[in-house]
Design a protein around this nucleic acid. Sequence first.
DNA 1: TCCGAATGAGACACTTTTGTCTCATTCGAC
DNA 2: GTCGAATGAGACAAAAGTGTCTCATTCGGA
Lengths: 186, 186
Amino acid sequence: MTKRDLILGAAQRLLNIDPAASMGAIAEAGGISRATLHRHFPTRESLLTELGTRSLDRWQERLDAASAEDLAAAGDREAIARAISELVRGFVQDAHDFGFTLTDHVILADASLNERTEQLTTREAALWSAGQRAGVLRDDVPPRWICHAVYGLLVAGREASRLGDVAPRELADLVLSTFLKGVDAS
Amino acid sequence: MTKRDLILGAAQRLLNIDPAASMGAIAEAGGISRATLHRHFPTRESLLTELGTRSLDRWQERLDAASAEDLAAAGDREAIARAISELVRGFVQDAHDFGFTLTDHVILADASLNERTEQLTTREAALWSAGQRAGVLRDDVPPRWICHAVYGLLVAGREASRLGDVAPRELADLVLSTFLKGVDAS
DNA sequence: TCCGAATGAGACACTTTTGTCTCATTCGAC
DNA sequence: GTCGAATGAGACAAAAGTGTCTCATTCGGA
């Protein structure tokens, strides 16, 4: 764990609580001086961009772990269903760590991050599409909408957890179940 | 339509595009000078609070229109199902107009607005609860979670619309359908 | 037309934050 | 213990935004 990682970790935790935290507040949260913080991250934007990048790294790792492309090629129904469940559960965990990046306007406005987000969205959509072809997911909705739906439910889960409306342990089940089955009585 | 409403409308439109817009930018968007804007809204916070209040007004009106409490008392399955559909569709429209209030940190940090949000959440949750009792909604999820799920899907819908991934006309159907049925193959 | 209210333009002070810089101190590897 | 790198503390300038104020102008109703 490098010093840089420790700083980023502290910044992440603080920004999850207060997305508008200043460099001074972030430095304090990391137990370092503002000068040192600036030595590691020249600008606030560079710090946020780095956190955004790491957030996207996690997303990418989840897709890698799901072997999205392999599954799509194989078309194994059971395997795809299992991968989808694990993927969403992983996302819930990631959203807990990196939640603020989902709605932070500085990060959302970064062109480079948006470009990569677009690529990952396309990759993820391919998995949803494979799920549709395999008969695991309903095929009357655009795969890209499914990406957005997951995103929205992650935001919802984060908020529900923050407000104490859902116990952390139940969150992943709730998000996954709602994602797959909705709230209609079966 | 009072002058105040015109200003608020312009501010709303701009803030939906750039939630960090300054008072100067908002004044320009409204075609008035910054001085005049400050005459109507002493502080930026007061402007945002007003928009947040109007957003909650709309939410409240939706609940009123749905006759949430009456339906809950009557327990008419068909009526409840219909009201839920209309309610969510209405929310999608509201989210299009007031979307930025869903994630704006100034608004989310306002104690008074939060208190009212809590009340409306409780009211809305009562409707979901009634839906559960009537057998319209699955009863293995907390009613409050359903509130959050709707909220998240509204954020998702807004984002999907903004990025052009979903045609505006299809949005309400998509949100409602995902809300009720999820994305699992039936 | 007249008068008062509302507005626009601009100056101003103030606050907050950012990013830079310096210097003394501390830390760690050797 | 020594030396160099890293750090903390603090000063500093600059930028951006906010809120106030003044004054001339415009607008609208009586």
